[in-house]
Amino acid sequence: MAKVAIKVRDLRTSYSSHVVHEHLDMDVYEGEIVGVIGPSGSGKSVLLRAIVGLKKPDCGTVEVYGENVTGLEGDELREVQTLWGIMFQDGALFSNLTVRENVMAPMREHTDLSKPFMRQLADQKIRMAGLETSAGDKFPSDLSGGMRKRAALARALALDPPILFLDEPTAGLDPITAGAFDKLVRDLQQSLSLTVFLVTHDLDTLAATCDRIVALGDKRVVAAGTMDELRAMDQPWLQEYFGGPRGRAAAAGVK
């Protein structure tokens, strides 16, 4: 079995009286793409936020490469933040910076490379994410949804992090763009040997990219395994999820 990259144990998170997760255990192995699914409001995004430290858990631990990252602050937090890149749902690009400056932002903060090289490297990342070099001069508001996602991916990859978090990477994209984005994620994952934590609703994305799927529900992980394993499970929500017309279509698309 491969090494564990992210290890979540006994996690409990809540917003005032509303408990989102309770006794949640989860493992993400190195070099795999894990898709996290679950009904709306089951805490997929909150789980992501809890792992990267944006949401403080009530109790429980999150370990990344064997190091406890819960409740870190200051320099320690900065240190572990270089381990991952995050692509937020709508990109969350800084609207007052150009795409190139967006990609350069983490480099400026965490490295002391020279400005011209940083600019060239940022351009390379932009091309890596499948955009034209000329897109680097544009502002996020001038880009289409798909391009914004790619720009956000370029920024997430700016520091070559071993772990990549993607929050709804294909939401709001047309099927062709979404398909291309899935392929991009898959290709980059292979060439950069990334560990990818992917939150999604998109069955096609799940089928096309994920090695393993983790289903959340009832405040914890209800099932984990490959798509076929999950499909075979006798769990009503999973049955409905994969058995519906969309689920069957996605499965047919892969075969």
Binding site: T82, M107, H110, T111, D112, L113, S114, F117, L121, A158, L159, D160
Partner: peptide, 14 residues
């Protein structure tokens, strides 16, 4: 050779 260490050699090599 990573993005964090490159600044030591990048100017010369370029």
């Amino acid at each position: 050779w990573t993005v964090h260490t490159l600044s030591a050699v990048q100017p010369e090599l370029s």
